[in-house]
Design a protein around this nucleic acid. Structure first.
Lengths: 156, 156
DNA sequence: CGCAATTCAATTGCGCACAACTGAATGGCC
DNA sequence: GGCCATTCAGTTGTGCGCAATTGAATTGCG
């Protein structure tokens, strides 16, 4: 006999809840550390991608971050209002909007460089541990993304 | 020489971003699975606590879930509107609000019992792996909760 | 070419998360 | 007993995340 179904209702809280709690705890630390940069964590992620790629359309930005225009459009407007990025319709494809760093946006990178070290310190994890955890999480994400309700309930 | 600071801005994206992505991927699967229960994932978490404890004040509910009244108050109102819980001022302490399951709320547990199994199937992880991951995440959360900006920047 | 299907950003609507604040109730301390 | 700090829940305001829709631009196909 395995664990009664009743207890699963407690167990189940574990994975996803732990994940969720860790994600929110991270948010709290990032909030403190990013405050003097004037960025929220999602905005910081967008800036990371832009620092790496220079410029790219909203669509590609979303592909890197797993976010759609519903989230990115208002976020990018705020970054634009803060003077960190510009947005303009692509000349080659009028459907697309090209996001570019401004001088201020590019310059902000200099102040962001020390963020990762401070975050790493806050976790108390060493590099190997981080890498291992990251690998497991990415595998988990891939499995969840592949989830198909039909296949799960009716494995024909 | 270790990794140049410049690369840390990529590496850094890893942990927290992977965590965040996994959390959102979970959200997507839960959204599908919880749809016929008429619950969102945070609402499901609240119901889990209530199914386990029967009734408890908003404050304790928040302690279990790491949520404050700013999040719980409107959420509980929605659960109340859905007829799953009642909320009433405690007689012993008029500041406190007691949250209780209704008959419908208690009955919903029967239909929720199979949720954990379906979620577990979607992850593709076995029990040991889940337990290991959960442990690491809880340790991470504890470390992040203990984060003190002063101590981090000026280890006197 | 002409028309339908697709692709893209933006918008709307809803719910969550959290900081900051309000106001009522309670408890401690003199 | 009277006062002040604390403890509660609730509200407000901001931002994220996502589904659904809109509307414009592009692509594909006959």
């Amino acid at each position: 006999m395995t664990t009664p179904a009743t207890d699963w209702l407690r167990l189940d809280q574990q994975i996803c809840f732990s994940l969720n709690a860790a994600s929110r705890a991270f948010g709290g630390v990032y909030r403190v550390i990013l405050k003097d940069l004037g960025l929220t964590y999602p905005q910081y992620l967008v800036m990371l991608v832009l620092w790496e790629h220079g410029e790219l359309p909203v669509k590609k930005l979303g592909a890197h971050l797993r976010l759609d225009s519903g989230t990115l459009s208002p976020l990018l407007k705020r970054l634009e209002a803060a003077g960190l990025v510009t947005r303009e319709r692509s000349a080659r494809d009028e459907r697309s909007v090209e996001v570019r760093l401004t001088g201020r946006g590019a310059a902000l990178r200099g102040r962001a460089v020390e963020v990762p070290r401070r975050i790493a310190a806050a976790t108390g994890f060493d590099l190997a541990e981080v890498e291992d955890l990251r690998t497991r999480l990415d595998r988990l994400t891939a499995a969840l993304d592949a989830y198909d309700p039909e296949a799960a309930s009716a494995p024909s």
